[in-house]
Simulated assay, not measured.
Amino acid sequence: MPYQEEQNYETYQETADWLLSRTKYRPKVAIICGSGLGMLVEALANQEIFKYTDVPNFPQSTVQGHTGQLVFGELKGKACVCMQGRFHMFEGYPLVKVTFPVRVFHLLGVEVLIVTNAAGSIADGYNTGDIMIIKDHINLPGLAGQHPLRGPNDERFGPRFPCMSDVYDRALGKLALGISRELDFSNYTHEGVYCMVGGPSFETIAEARLLHKLGVDAVGMSTVPEVTVARHCGLQVFGLSLITNKVTMEYDSNEVVDHEAVLSIGKKRARLLQSLVTELVARMELNPTANVQVKK
Rank of each mutant, 00 (worst) to 15 (best):
L242V: 12
M284T: 04
D258N: 12
L276S: 04
L280Q: 08
E255I: 10
N245F: 02
N287G: 08
F238Q: 05
E285W: 00
S275E: 13
E279A: 06
V262P: 07
I265R: 05
E255P: 05
I243V: 10
R269V: 09
A270Y: 11
L263V: 08
S241K: 09
M249I: 15
T278F: 04
V257F: 13
R283Y: 06
E279P: 13
G239H: 12
I243E: 08
Y251H: 11
M249Y: 09
G239P: 13
A261Y: 06
T244V: 02
R283H: 02
M284N: 09
V292P: 04
H259S: 07
G266F: 01
L272P: 00
V247E: 03
L273W: 00
A261C: 08
E255Q: 08
V277N: 00
K268C: 05
E260F: 01
H259M: 15
L273Q: 09
N245G: 06
L276N: 12
H259W: 10
A290T: 09
I265P: 09
E250N: 12
D258K: 06
E279Y: 10
K268V: 14
T278D: 09
Q236T: 11
T289Y: 05
M284H: 02
S275Q: 15
L263D: 12
Y251G: 15
S241M: 01
G239W: 08
E285K: 00
T244M: 03
E285H: 07
L242M: 01
L240D: 13
L242H: 03
I243Y: 04
N254P: 00
E250M: 12
N254G: 02
V292Y: 05
L273P: 11
Y251V: 07
K246P: 03
T248D: 03
E255V: 14
T278R: 06
L273Y: 04
A282I: 02
I243C: 14
L286D: 02
S275F: 07
P288C: 00
V256I: 09
S241Y: 04
L263Q: 14
V281E: 03
N254A: 13
V247H: 03
A270W: 08
